[in-house]
Simulated assay, not measured.
Amino acid sequence: MITESAEDDISNIAPETNAGSEPVTYADVSDLAWANEQRSAITCRAVFPFIGDAPVLVGVVAHDPHAPYIGEIFARAVAGEFGEIAPFVPTAPLVPDRVSSRQFRLQLLGMGLLDTVEGWIDAQPLATQIAYQSSATFERGDAMMQAGFDALGFEPAQVDAFFVAAAGL
């Protein structure tokens, strides 16, 4: 049985019971936000007495066969018992500091820039040509990269978008 009291707390540490003997209890569920666009998960903070008095960040879903209290918190949150659930806010993708040669060239191809860039490379000093031809990875902060993107007229945000897209290939 799941109970709630001012001293209660929830956690993923012990799925069904705290220390294996008592039902997991929780209290002070707050800071609710949808964790995805599908609204199938919620992040929130809750206090679990068997852990301590401080709120713990927890993700809850409609059904967790190993931790029934997770589903209970989800259902009560959706019913509005803990207040409004903030909308899902997608986070900006992390810009990788490097991508593989394959990813880099495929991204150039996909953007219709492969021939342009390779033409630019052919007009560069031999060291730049060798670096382009034999690099296993392309690093975002490399001086050759900056010169190439500058030659294409890319703004920093466009370079970031290029690396994010290339990393997905």
Score class of each variant (00 low, 15 high):
His66Tyr: 08
Met145Lys: 05
Ser100Lys: 03
Ser101Met: 09
Glu155Gly: 00
Pro87Val: 13
Ser30Pro: 13
Gly59Ala: 09
Asp31Gln: 12
Pro68Glu: 14
Ala151Asp: 15
Leu57Tyr: 03
Asp28Ile: 09
Asp9Phe: 01
Phe88Ser: 13
Ala35Arg: 03
Asp122Gln: 12
Ala92Ser: 13
Arg105Leu: 04
Phe149Asp: 03
Ala123Ser: 15
Ile85Pro: 00
Ser40Thr: 15
Thr3Cys: 12
Pro68Tyr: 12
Asp160Ala: 09
His63Thr: 02
Ala127Phe: 08
Gly110Asn: 05
Thr91Trp: 08
Ile121Thr: 10
His66Ile: 00
Gln129Met: 01
Leu108Ala: 05
Ala54Gly: 07
Ala92His: 11
Ala123Pro: 01
Arg39Val: 15
Asn36Trp: 01
Ile42Ala: 12
Gly52Leu: 12
Ser30Thr: 10
Ala79Gly: 12
Ala33Glu: 14
Asp97Glu: 14
Tyr26Phe: 06
Ala165Ile: 13
Pro87Thr: 14
Arg76Ile: 11
Ala27Asn: 04
Leu152Pro: 05
Leu32Asp: 08
Glu81Lys: 09
Met145Pro: 05
Gln103Asp: 09
Thr3Ile: 13
Glu118Ser: 08
Ser11Arg: 07
Leu32Gln: 03
Pro96Ile: 06
Ile42Glu: 09
Gln107Thr: 15
Phe48Tyr: 11
Glu7Trp: 13
Leu57Lys: 04
Ile130Asp: 10
Gly112Ile: 14
Val58Arg: 01
Ser101Trp: 11
Pro68Thr: 06
Gly119Asp: 11
Val164Pro: 03
Val56Arg: 06
Thr3Val: 15
Ser5Leu: 11
Ile73Cys: 05
Val78Asn: 00
Ala19Cys: 13
Glu22Lys: 15
Gly110Tyr: 04
Val24Gly: 07
Pro68Asn: 14
Gly52Val: 12
Phe82Tyr: 01
Asn18Val: 15
Ala131Ser: 08
Ile130Glu: 09
Leu113Lys: 10
Val58Phe: 04
Thr43Gln: 00
Leu126Cys: 07
Asn12Ala: 14
Leu94Thr: 03
Ala33Thr: 14
Thr116Leu: 05
Gly119Gln: 10
Ile121Ala: 01
Asp8Leu: 12
Ser30Tyr: 07
Asp97Arg: 06
Ile42Trp: 06
Gly141Asp: 02
Pro65Phe: 06
Ala62Lys: 04
Pro156Cys: 07
Ala33Pro: 13
Tyr69His: 15
Ile73Gly: 09
Leu114Thr: 12
Ser40Met: 08
Val95His: 04
Thr128Gly: 09
Val164His: 10
Val24Tyr: 03
Thr43Lys: 07
Val61Phe: 08
Met1Tyr: 02
Asn18Met: 12
Ala92Asp: 14
Ala27Ser: 04
Phe48Glu: 15
Gln158Ala: 02
Gln103Thr: 12
Val99Ala: 02
Ala54Thr: 00
Arg45Gln: 15
Val78Cys: 07
Arg105Lys: 08
Gly52Asp: 14
Glu7Leu: 14
Ile73Glu: 01
Pro15Trp: 08
Val47Lys: 07
Pro156Gly: 00
Ile2Met: 13
Asp160Arg: 00
Asp9Val: 05
Asn36Ala: 00
Phe50Lys: 10
Asn36Arg: 03
Gly83Asp: 11
Val95Asp: 05
Asp9Ala: 04
Pro15Asn: 13
Ser30Arg: 07
Gly59His: 03
Pro23Gly: 06
Asp97Pro: 03
Gly71Phe: 13
Ala86Lys: 11
Val47Glu: 02
Val159Trp: 10
